[in-house]
Structure formats: C-alpha cells, structure tokens
C-alpha cells in the first residue's frame, strides 16, 4: 500500500523553533522517524512521500489541513500517517486535524499522539494510537504505530487493543436513580470501605509548568489576550456569551485605550457593568501602552485575541491555547498577558 507520512519541521530535520513558520512541502520517500517506521512496516507498505510543515504555520490556521491533504492526494496516498506528535501541542493539533480531514474525505488515516496531547480532541472520529509523552519513547511508539498501520491497511478498524486512544466518550444517559440517591449510595459504599468507587475519575488535573521568565523584557514583543469576551461594541462578529466555539482577533495598532461604548464585554459569566464602564480593566491596554512608552517592554503586539471562558470545555480551551501560542510565535511575540475573569 502507498503511504504518505506527515511530520513537522523538527522531525524532518529542517530546524527547530526558528523554522516553525515554514510552509508545507513534500519530500520523496521517508524522513526522520519515517525511516524506522518503514523498517518496521517491511515490504508490504511503502512510504512514498513525506509532507512537512512548520508547526506555527500549520497550527495557526485550520485551513492548512486541507492544503496538506491535497498534497497527500497528489502523491497518490492510499493511507495517511501523522506523527508521532508525543505530547507536543501544536504538532498534535495539526496531526489530529489532518487525520480528521483525511477520514472525512474517505482516505484511511491514523495519528500517533500521547493520550494527553491537547490536540487529540480535533481528531474527531479518526483513529489515534497512543504515543509516549516524549521522543525518547520513539521506538515503542513506532512499533505500535506500524502494527496499527498494517491492521488499518487490511480495512479492519482500530480498537483499544491496538493502543487506540480518545473516542472513549463519556456520554450522558438517563438512569433509574436520581443523582442525590446515587450520592447517598456512594457515600455509604465509601464508608463501608470501598474507597475507589466514584462515578467520575478524581484528580489527574493538568499541571502547567510556567515558562522561563522573558530574558529582556525591555526588548520583548508582548501580546494581550483575554477570555473576558472583549469585543467591539455591538459584537459585530457574534462572539458567544458562553460555551465558546471560536476566538477572535482585533487590531489595536495606534489605539491607546479601550473607550467605553467603543469596546465591551459580552461574557455571560459575571456582571459586566464595571468592565463595560472601563474595558481596560478586562484587557489592560492603557497600562500596557504606558509600559511601552516607559520602555519597560519592547513593544505591544498589534492585535489582541479574545474569547469567552464561561462554560467553555477544557478540550476547546486547550485548542484555543495551542492556536494562540502558534499565532504569537509566528508573529515573533515573546510574552503574552492572559487576563481571566
């Protein structure tokens, strides 16, 4: 079977963060982890081409996945492989979007990602098999991926036995007992010694490791981003007041302060009266301009990003975070101030 493999700029050997803005390109045959993957696959399946794209270029725009898919089509792919992306957010997001697009276009596809990769939710119904958290686990990750590719090539669906992750959907359903009764049952079971019983897994929350401080703040490009739903007055782009599905960007080049009546918050989760009397208190443009004038920061990025955090799912919020990071890195921004409500 003719396989096409997607990897990012780093694994293709084209460069690290400095090359993350590279546009898509096609290489003949294998590149990077594709070489070992080809060995593991044997002679039945050939990686005929490798598609490469810089993480920032690819992750900042969902439309790039259509471009990448078209390149795979042009290379006569019969099956598409993406990754392994391990725990990398931008790479994982692109891999997930690409296999989702391929599956939607009836091209069999599989991605390899760590189960906690923030992009995993974007794979939709397309299969993702588990990768290790870091590249040190390359060999066992590729062994699993090769086995999954061989199985998928026969037309058989991938299951948890193949290391498939995601898709383990927690879906609401009606049961006989109301929640209050189930709470009493649960407390009695725990008192009777069953300390493991729970209806939702407890703990396991992400720990965010802070990035290193900015080296030279007075030379840094700084961006303002917010989940406080700051938008031009009247909300022309119809940002949701709750349960965001998207984020927006607005230029602030030459704007020194957010004037009440010109900007507003449409957030549904808190009383916006005070925020709308002075939108700078949600997005501190006035203070940032002052720091810029005083030379405390290099310069303020020319646009801000805005969404609403109220009721937005963790998976969606993670995706926004990855997209924002890719956008800001692409624009050469070194630091961002995220105001939350």
């Amino acid at each position: 079977m003719r396989l096409v493999h997607y990897v990012n700029q780093f694994y293709a050997g084209l460069g690290g963060e400095d090359a993350a803005g590279l546009g898509p390109q096609v290489l003949d045959g294998t590149a990077g982890p594709g070489r070992l993957l080809q060995q593991l696959l044997g002679e039945d399946h050939q990686i005929v081409a490798t598609i490469v794209c810089g993480d920032n270029y690819a992750a900042s725009d969902p439309a790039v996945s259509a471009e990448l898919l078209e390149m795979a089509r042009t290379a006569d792919a019969e099956l598409l492989i993406a990754g392994p992306a391990f725990g990398s957010g931008r790479y994982g997001l692109v891999c997930a979007r690409l296999v989702a697009a391929a599956q939607a276009a009836d091209l069999p596809a599989v991605a390899s990602m760590h189960p906690d990769n923030p992009g995993i939710g974007e794979a939709g119904a397309a299969p993702v098999v588990a990768a290790g958290a870091v590249a040190r686990q390359m060999r066992p990750t590729l062994e699993r991926l090769a086995a999954a590719v061989a199985k998928l090539a026969t037309g058989a669906p991938l299951t948890a036995e193949d290391g498939r992750v995601g898709g383990n959907a927690r879906i609401g359903r009606l049961v006989e007992d109301r929640a209050a009764r189930r709470a009493v049952e649960l407390v009695l079971a725990r008192l009777a010694g069953d300390r493991e019983r729970t209806e939702v897994p407890v703990g396991g929350f992400d720990v965010v490791v802070p990035a290193a401080p900015v080296d030279k703040a007075d030379a840094a490009a700084v961006a303002l981003v917010t989940e406080g739903a700051v938008v031009p007055f009247g909300n022309p782009d119809r940002l949701e007041s709750a349960r965001a599905t998207r984020w927006l960007r607005y230029p602030i080049e030459g704007v020194d302060t957010l004037v009440s009546g010109t900007w507003e918050s449409v957030a549904g989760g808190f009383a916006t009266t005070l925020a709308n009397a002075d939108p700078n208190r949600l997005l501190p443009l006035d203070a940032a301009r002052e720091l810029e004038r005083d030379g405390a920061i290099g310069h303020l990025h020319g646009e801000f990003f805005s969404t609403v955090g109220n009721g937005t799912s963790v998976a969606t919020a993670k995706r926004f975070g990855v997209e924002w990071a890719a956008e800001l890195r692409k624009a050469g921004v070194q630091a961002a101030i995220l105001t939350a409500t």
């Binding site: 939710g121 927690r170 609401g172 407890v202 929350f205 963790v314 998976a315």
Partner: peptide, 26 residues
C-alpha cells in the same frame, strides 16, 4: 461533566483530588 459535545475531553475543569464524585451528566 464538561467533556465537550463528543464527551472525549477532560470531564472536570476543576475538582477534588480526594473523595468521590457523582456525575450529573455532560
């Protein structure tokens, strides 16, 4: 739970590290 429309995201935004949890739906 707030695990997204397909139910595949993390179920809790913030929650306990001990004890047990009853699910009220998604």
């Amino acid at each position: 739970e707030m695990s997204g429309s397909d139910g595949t995201g993390p179920p809790l935004v913030a929650g306990p590290r001990h004890g047990a949890v009853v699910s009220l739906g998604n």
